[in-house]
Amino acid sequence: MGTNISLEEKFQAYVDAENKVEPKDWMPEKYRKTLVRQISQHAHSEIIGMQPEANWITRAPSLRAKLILLAKVQDEAGHGLYLYSAAETLGTSRDQMIADLQSGKAKYSSIFNYPTPSWADMGTIGWLVDGAAIQNQVMLTRTSYGPYARAMVKICKEESFHQRQGYEVVMKLAQGTPEQKKMAQESLNRWWWPSLMMFGPSDDNSPNSEQSMRWKIKRKSNDTLRQEFIDKTVPQAHYLGLTIPDPDLKWNDERGSYDFGEINWDEFYNVIQGNGPCNKDRITHHVKAHEEGAWVREAALAYAEKEAKRKENRTSAA
């Protein structure tokens, strides 16, 4: 018992001194679990997040836009791959993580349970959803777990690029024909509140936050990050001539920040619990692709085994 306490104390002191934790270091079991949960959730978000955007690749309205969107979704697949690898350093296999995603045990960002009926959503997602993700991820470049922090540095660079591209799509619409402006505004109306929900429950309702802050996995609270995002994004909307769909939104001189209306937490918890418009579609699509690919994965494995055996025979014959 005594040793255990001192190991945890030593760990806390190590983290407090701004050292990075590496895969082979001792760590509290709960730290490991928290990280696996968070990193795999992040990886799943990248992978499930491919779907709402892949939805528009075949219909992108210019060849340039098609290439940019394809490249973006490819980046997301790449991010998913790094993050699965980062989570694997903590002893959980990718197969296990994917099984947990498909069974509903593991979660992904609730934002991807909203549909993308409009081309404008390809802009809004880049601008708001990637914008919100960056707000969170810049913080995570300094997270205490080394492999996660390093993955975040690379991912953040690409995400900022995506956000600029998304903003460019919205700008073209906002400065375009009346129909295009309408498209941009309608899309903003749908995505604004779900984007704010991406930062998670408010601080007084966020059960995991306090411990994560102490371990320096997380360095800013949900509400702080949300406020920073709003303060940064509102002027961008104004610049585009778009209206944020919140009648209570108002600059507060005293706080030097925007006051904003009440988030519909009922909706947030319902979407997380599986009642969002696309929860079922997203998982069904993932499972379908996985099952339809089973024979291909089996073939690749069988071929690799045959090749290894042939190589072995060649070597022993030589």
Binding site: M50, R64, V73, G80
Partner: peptide, 28 residues
């Protein structure tokens, strides 16, 4: 490009998207 998010394994999703990118880039 329709294979995007539907490939048999993540690495091959990336490979096939990349190939689609090349073809569309050349078409341009």
């Amino acid at each position: 490009s329709k294979w995007c998010s539907a490939g048999p394994v993540l690495e091959q999703d990336i490979a096939i998207i990349n190939t689609a990118l090349d073809h569309i880039g050349r078409a341009r």
